[in-house]
């Protein structure tokens, strides 16, 4: 049963993209300056960049750091956030620390981190890690705090010990909230990835972007913006799909009902 409306709903992101490109194209033609290439020019440059092995390796470097930074952050932040949400003592211990780190732009720490860890992978991965950690900790904390106590009691009555309740009740119950944090974290990972490479120019997508900027290669600048933007959109969409699969039991309205009977 695909109605016209659902087809439009599915196509709407694509239409939005096409609309944006059209506006860009018209604006660029109209302004006609060298620093603002047309959308078609920028799009034509994309395959050139991706076709160049050196550039491609640079971009893959970025993605690798992002994946490592994001994964480490999630692996550490979820247990920490959950523990904080369920234990006043753990929360009292970590809260002041997090309150201090929270408002600091993580990229602003980059110079100090570079001083200690150099300009290589370690610094950049650490900044990504920090950027991702806070939203994931925060949402895991909120999710764990909101778990209905009677649910934990039910588990305790069935014989689950403290750790089992944490893993088998608090974790799944807080999962929708945790994944919301992870989604924010994913976008932040992309942002901190680019910023870190802007500050420590050595490799990566941000490096290509800002080098091209310095050399006034505006086609490349805009092509890189398209590549990074597309990467963000694809990652976010993929993650949202995963999220939906994992927590469809919590979504307020959809049609599992029809399939079940």
């Amino acid at each position: 049963m695909t109605s016209a409306r659902s087809i439009i709903a599915k196509l709407s992101p694509l239409l939005a993209c096409l609309g944006l490109l059209a506006v860009w194209q018209i604006a660029a033609l109209w302004l006609d300056t060298e620093s603002f290439p047309t959308a078609s020019h920028a799009l034509q440059t994309v395959p050139q960049i991706l076709g160049d092995p050196e550039q491609l390796l640079n971009i893959l470097d970025s993605i690798r750091r992002m994946v490592i930074g994001f994964s480490l952050a999630v692996l550490i932040s979820i247990p920490l956030g959950l523990a904080m949400g369920r234990s006043a003592r753990v929360s009292a211990f970590f809260n002041p620390l997090l309150m201090m780190i929270y408002p600091v732009p993580k990229a602003a720490l980059m110079p100090v981190i570079m001083l200690w860890l150099g300009v290589g992978d370690a610094s950049k991965t650490l900044v990504i890690f920090l950027g991702v950690s806070l939203p994931v900790i925060y949402h895991s904390f909120q999710g764990a705090k909101a778990v209905e106590e009677k649910m934990l009691w039910s588990g305790a009555a069935m014989g689950l010990n403290g750790l089992q309740r944490m893993v088998r009740i608090v974790l799944p119950a807080a999962l929708p909230e945790i994944l919301t944090g992870c989604r924010t974290g994913l976008v932040l990972a992309l942002i901190t990835m680019v910023t870190s490479e802007m500050i420590a120019r050595q490799s990566g997508a941000g490096n290509i972007l800002f080098n091209a900027m310095d050399m006034a290669q505006y086609d490349t600048v805009f092509a890189m913006i398209i590549i990074i933007g597309a990467l963000g959109i694809v990652l976010d969409a993929a993650f949202d799909k995963l999220r939906w699969r994992l927590v469809k039991w919590a979504e307020p309205h959809q049609e599992i009902l029809l399939g079940a009977s």
Partner: peptide, 20 residues
Amino acid sequence: TGPGPDRGPVFQEFALFPWK
């Protein structure tokens, strides 16, 4: 001193596991 499977509660609020 604590809960155990010898005593089974049925809570006023149900407290089902929503992911199951």
